[in-house]
Design a protein around this nucleic acid. Structure first.
Length: 1151
RNA sequence: UGGGAUAUAGCUCAACGGUGAGAGCAGGUGCCUUAUACGCAUCAGGUUACAGGUUCAAGCCCUGUUAUCCCAACCA
């Protein structure tokens, strides 16, 4: 006879290990995919992690979410393939290699060849793959790590090139220049990622200036021949020579102010000037008390300067106004020196008029281009002014625009130089320190009467993480993807994506799309996918490569034309998709750069940039399949595209989520994914970000070893919605372990214990029909099937936290603490009979279903539980347990006919009544072991009474009372309360609601009477009459005078606390039973062992024992009970039966 | 600085615009149990971040403020 396995202790960590071995030996994961062959696919894309970092607890979180839905959909019958992937390119890898080798970027090509460097990167990037494999297995994440896609593979790169070429053909790829963070000291552009390294943004003190731009002809704005200035603020005066426009806000109100020049040139101290600035910022420059000053009282040099607002304009009225170039060192290409409208202009600081230097600001560049304004770039790539920025007094040409770029010696040298010039020219009496370009420009403006105000200003400014020097924003050549061309389509298709949470899709992602810029694809690095574009030096000829085959042909041509000597792709066989064929070459630098092509007699060289690694990962739907060279049909006929589901951290919103979307829309006019869950961060228990630096990072290996993967996963899922941040607290895992897994383990243990005693094994083909099972069974099945329905809905909605919480409630409150607790006797009392069998079958079904429902979240424990329940069945062919793993079963459907809401309500009522009776006992200090005679329940409607009747026995047993008596007004006086139903009355009464409420409070007795007798009551209020119908009120019995009463919502219970002699003796008998059971347990007797009992006689006890002898014996499996005169304390246990009675009991096991 | 999210008991989280805002954990007290200090009962703990507004009625809707987090960032 096969048995259900029994265990001594719950050890989740061990269960994980055992189940993991089982999966490996039985290839359960592979089967979960292969057994679904031919079924509808459910497409999942794995976002590639970078294997050169260690896995963290947040990866466990993110992967749990992915795993849950893949497992769930597999249970639903879908085939869910899960190809793992590795992100292998990019800066972090380069940095890691440089650190390991002790080199810097400058050394590449000198101390180490590009070739060697890339070999190192290729090695380095996979250095933690073992750790990743390990955590993947241990956490129970099912993903195919045997055949991952790897972004550095030639096949992967070929697909990426195909996509790029496709964009090139559609004219969505162009080379242009934009304003990018640039480090002159390092001679390289910086990515936003680099700027976001810790410590890059630092507070710096800069010289700021409000410059005055003279309007060329102010007649249109003021009177004819008037002279006026625009005021514009800048924190970077060194950009002023490159100014080509001024921007105003379209709807901002501006004023023209007549005043005196604060820094006039000699001789013009008393000539009034007119300046224009935003009205909102008037106070900042013109204190309102100065408005009362009289112009005629003003003397040169006065601190307080009178002013007068003479006119006002909307920004749009100023647009188009031409002004004189502020610092005319060079002439710009194209149109310039005009007022334009900029959407970014605000009045939070400055003057509401923004100085535009298109070369040195992204906004400036954009708004200038939109308005056809040209640029001036008077700074070179070294960070120095061009030679022409020179006046011989303040500016000397070819000097660093930022003080920080000068070395101490350079600074000292410059200081001596400028000291001489400035002092000789009488500009400064005695120069004490080096003056920065910014400071000297301000001096120059002042000298020329173009300065309104200067001050120091502290703001945060980005620095290059390698050189520690401030960054410049500088126009750089780059390749761009014209994402803006398809912006509307991207927005449109985004609306078809199911975002969890929704706000991320409409908000963070939606806004991002609305403000989309072209995607800068270029990166000046070494380890990445080369841009597959070759251009002639005069840029007249260009070839974009979309496949290795094409490249091979072009090389052949180049060889024929003699521009190349050797064909690195000679061995490549067209059409051969074998790995061997793809391993004979390398598309990375430096090999790609060594290829020179030929077109129309011109040599073509590769564009030197690599592509943004984000394109790598966004290309994975296609590149992981080597599309279109292989698996073309999977994408083209949408068999494996788009994804039904992806999930990553919310930080990927503008990363992977965007690149997937952009590439899909631009290449295939499709979404890349239909459902996306963006999960929140994992913080430490105090809500701080985890970091190695702070030492608060949680080690996932340790955590899983200690608590097991299931408890860890369950905790993370149940504790917060996926998209909320999780405050990770180990104690929370311990709690889950105790509460959910402990309870479930015990519930199973209970089942196994008695099933084995009774030699019961489930027979799915022969079960007691549910209709013939008792109320409690039908109730728990009703709850169970409600649970299936709810959990299914939660999984379908991608709300795993709700699924987990529902399961917790069921296991804990319904199954363990009500069903099993109240059913215990049925399992151990008597021989097998239909009722006992029904109890086993009911409990078995609950455990089986729970095992399956929980298995996506707790895959090990779910499978362990399932395996135990299945253990005595053998192959279990043709049953729901035919598969040898829960993960290979078919998801159970809720049987709606078993869901009986009335029954659920009834049982809730029984629990409520029980709890109320226990509460009265507590108040009256009567133990539950002491039987009581009677409960009274006042009932006002028959339905409630019949509901309680149905669960009466359960209540009585639970609270240890003999009978329930239903009372109404015919046999007792009941105090009743009136409650108004605000929902129905709100509609009826509206604004009179408060008055009705007040009236009802004063006349509750009358209203109750009227409603009960006549079915309605009239409420006269504010000269109106409202008729209260039964649905508008609730009449609740709250008290029976003279009884001990408890009240909860609509239910009231009264308890008879009078103890008769019989009851008292019965209570004592139960105390005795309890003591005997405790001794049994202490002695380690089996639950089936029969015993003989000797109890030392005691006056207060003997009668209670003899009168309840049968009861005591049958409860304790006692074959022989004797009251004896004396027991030796050596062989007997001393027990206190109550405060006054103590005795000795001895127990012998009977054979 | 902008966009997004969050703010409810000491902690973690619930709560269709509807009558005293609920669980669990942690704490006090008492109790039940031949599955289990698992639980049950009970006490304490709340100005639902703050200030306004809409409504007969607001934790929930609207506006603003503050704090924290994420993302994007030299808006001059």
């Amino acid at each position: 006879m096969k048995k259900y396995p029994e265990y001594k202790h719950l050890n989740l960590s061990q269960i994980s290990k055992d189940v993991l071995r089982f999966w490996e030996e039985n290839h359960t994961f592979e089967k979960s995919v292969s057994t679904r062959e031919g079924q509808a696919p459910w497409v999942f894309y794995e976002g590639p992690p970078s294997a050169n970092g260690m896995p963290g607890i947040h990866h466990v979180m993110a992967r749990t979410i992915k795993d849950i839905f893949c497992r769930y959909k597999t249970l639903q019958g879908f085939q869910v393939k899960r190809k793992a992937g590795w992100d292998t390119h990019g800066l972090p890898i380069e940095l890691s290699v440089e650190k390991a080798l002790g080199i810097t970027k400058e050394d590449i090509g000198k101390k180490i060849t590009v070739e060697q460097y890339n070999i190192e990167c290729r090695k380095d990037v996979m250095k933690y793959t073992d750790k990743w494999s390990d955590i993947t297995k241990k956490m129970g994440y099912w993903v195919d790590m045997e055949n991952p896609y790897i972004t550095y593979d030639n096949k992967y790169i070929e697909s990426v090139w195909w996509l790029l070429n496709n964009l090139y053909t559609k004219d969505l790829l162009y080379k242009g220049f934009t304003i990018q963070p640039y480090s002159p000291a390092a001679g390289t552009g910086l990515s936003s990622h680099e700027l976001n390294q810790p410590g890059c943004y630092r507070d710096v003190k800069d010289r700021t200036a409000v410059a005055m731009f003279k309007i060329a002809d102010a007649s249109a704005l003021l009177e004819k021949g008037a002279e006026a200035f625009f005021m514009a603020w800048t924190t970077t005066p060194w950009t002023l020579p490159s100014n080509t426009a001024l921007a105003v806000g379209k709807d901002i109100e501006y004023v023209a102010v007549k005043t005196f020049h604060p820094h006039p040139v000699k001789g013009k101290e008393l000539e009034p000037v007119v300046v224009i600035l935003a009205k909102d910022l008037l106070d900042k420059y013109f204190p309102s008390k100065s408005a009362e000053l009289k112009f005629e009282d003003y003397k040169a040099g006065d601190k307080a300067i009178p002013f007068q607002v003479i006119k006002s304009y909307k920004g749009s009225e100023l647009a188009g106004t031409v002004y004189n170039q502020l610092l005319p060192f060079a002439k710009p290409d194209g149109d310039a020196f005009r007022v334009i409208v900029g959407d970014f202009v605000t009045t939070t600081d400055g003057t509401g008029i923004v100085h535009i230097a298109p070369s040195f600001g992204a906004d400036d560049f954009r708004v200038a281009r939109q308005n056809g304004i040209g640029a001036l770039t008077l700074v070179d790539k070294r960070g120095k002014f061009l030679p022409e920025v020179k006046d011989g007094i303040f500016l000397y040409g070819e000097e660093y625009v930022k003080e920080a770029y000068l070395s101490d010696e350079e600074k000292a040298h410059e200081f001596q130089f400028q000291k001489k010039i400035l002092e000789d020219n009488g500009k400064i009496k005695e120069l004490k320190a080096y003056l920065s370009v910014d400071e000297r420009i301000v001096l120059k403006l002042q000298e020329e009467g173009k300065l309104f105000k200067k001050e120091q200003y502290v703001h945060s400014y980005p620095h290059c993480w390698r050189t520690d020097k401030p960054v410049l924003y500088y126009p750089l050549d780059s390749w761009f993807i014209r994402t803006t061309a398809l912006k509307d389509r991207m927005i449109e298709l985004n609306k078809t994506i199911n975002w969890k949470p929704e706000a991320t899709g409409t908000g963070r992602f939606g806004n991002w799309l609305e403000n989309l810029n072209d995607w800068n694809l270029s990166r000046s690095r070494f380890w990445g996918i080369p841009i597959p574009i070759w251009t002639s030096e005069d840029r007249s000829e260009q070839i974009c490569i979309g496949s290795v085959e094409q490249l091979q042909k072009e090389i052949a041509n180049a060889l024929a034309k003699g521009v190349m000597a050797e064909n690195p792709l000679a061995a490549y066989k067209t059409g051969d998709m074998s790995d061997a064929n793809y391993e004979g070459f390398d598309l990375h630098k430096p090999y790609a750069d060594n290829i020179v092509l030929e077109k129309n007699g011109k040599k073509l060289f590769r564009e030197p940039d690599l592509i943004d690694v984000w394109f790598d990962s966004g290309a994975m739907p296609y590149a992981q399949l080597h599309y279109p060279f292989e698996n073309k049909d999977l994408i083209d006929s949408k068999k494996y595209y788009p994804a039904d589901f992806i999930a990553e951290g919310v930080d990927q919103t503008r990363g992977w989520f965007f690149t997937l979307h952009a590439i899909a829309v631009m290449n295939f006019d499709s979404v890349a994914y239909k459902n996306v869950v963006s999960n929140g961060l994992v913080l430490d228990k105090n809500g701080n970000k985890m970091s190695k630096r702070l030492g608060n990072a949680v080690d996932p290996f340790e955590t899983i070893e200690k608590y097991g993967a299931d408890a860890t996963r369950w905790y993370m899922i149940a504790n917060a919605a996926p998209w909320d941040n999780l405050k990770f607290d180990m104690e929370g895992i311990a709690e889950v372990q105790r509460k959910l897994f402990g309870t479930l383990y015990n519930t199973y243990g209970f089942y196994a214990l008695y099933a084995n005693v009774d030699q019961f094994v489930i027979n799915p083909a022969d079960q007691v029909p549910v209709a013939q099972r008792q109320e409690l069974d039908r109730w728990v099945l009703s709850e169970l099937h409600s649970l299936i329905r709810d959990v299914t809905a939660h999984y379908e909605n991608f709300e795993p936290h709700r699924a987990a919480r529902s399961i917790e409630t069921f296991v804990d409150e319904h199954l363990s603490n009500w069903y099993v607790r109240l059913s215990r006797r049925r399992f151990w009392k008597g021989d097998m009979n239909p009722d006992k069998k029904a109890a086993y079958e009911t409990l078995h079904e609950c455990l089986l279903v729970v095992a399956q429902l929980m298995s996506p979240i707790a895959p090990f424990f779910g499978d362990w539980l399932y395996g135990n329940l299945r253990a005595p069945l053998g192959t279990a062919e043709n049953t729901a347990m035919a598969a040898d793993s829960v993960h290979l079963t078919n998801f159970m459907h809720a049987n709606e006919t078993l869901i009986d809401l009335k029954l659920n309500e009834r049982m809730e009522l029984a629990q409520k009544i029980s709890s109320m009776v226990l509460s009265i006992r507590k108040k009256e200090n009567i133990k539950v072991r002491q039987p009581l005679q009677k409960i009274q329940i006042p009932v006002l409607d028959k339905e409630m009474q019949s509901g309680i009747e149905a669960v009466k026995d359960l209540i009585l047993a639970e609270v240890n009372v003999k009978e329930i008596e239903f009372v109404d007004e015919s046999n007792t006086h009941i105090v009743k309360n009136l409650k108004l139903n605000f929902k129905t009355l709100g509609k009826k009464c509206g604004a009179d609601m408060k008055a009705v409420q007040a009236y009802a409070a004063d006349h509750s007795t009358n209203i109750i009477h009227d409603v009960e007798r006549h079915g309605k009551a009239v409420v006269p209020v504010n000269d109106k009459e409202y008729v209260l119908e039964p649905e508008d009120v609730e009449i609740i019995p709250v008290d029976i005078p003279g009884w001990k009463v408890a009240n909860n919502g609509p239910v009231t219970v009264a308890l008879d606390v009078v103890l008769s002699e019989d009851l008292r003796q019965e209570g004592l008998a139960r105390e005795i039973v309890n003591r005997i059971q405790n001794i049994r347990k202490d002695k380690g007797l089996d639950v089936t062992d029969k015993i003989s009992v000797k109890i030392q006689q005691n006056e207060g006890l003997d009668k209670a024992i003899t009168n309840n002898l049968n009861y005591i014996c049958s409860e304790t499996l006692t074959g022989d009970l004797q009251l004896v005169q004396n027991l030796s304390t050596a062989s007997a246990n001393a027990v206190e039966v109550d405060d006054t009675i103590s005795t000795l009991i001895s127990i012998e096991k009977l054979n």
